[in-house]
Amino acid sequence: MEIERPAMAGTLESSDCQVTVEPGDGRIDFTLESAVINQYGNQIRKVVFETLSHLGVDNIKISMVDKGALDCTIKARVEAAVSRSMDQFVNALWGGAFE
């Protein structure tokens, strides 16, 4: 699945995260700023990569500003941002790519 244009999902409220995606240069380029990076940085990265893998995305620049979001929130925000980058506004790609 290809990222077509920059898109965003999420907020900077406590316990949420804001995800920005844009077309990549042939790989997954992930940057993270997080209030809980010391404790959960690796876990957040794992969830982001797993979610992208489910969506079939491997060419993306994705950056996240995290305010202590739980894994389920992170997953939802990544899915929403990727959906929006493909103009998929109504039936977002919850849970993975189109069959």
Binding site: N38, Y40, D71
Partner: peptide, 10 residues
């Protein structure tokens, strides 16, 4: 169980 086990701060 809610937030995951935190890693120790380095």
């Amino acid at each position: 169980s809610i937030v995951g086990e935190p890693e120790r701060v380095q």
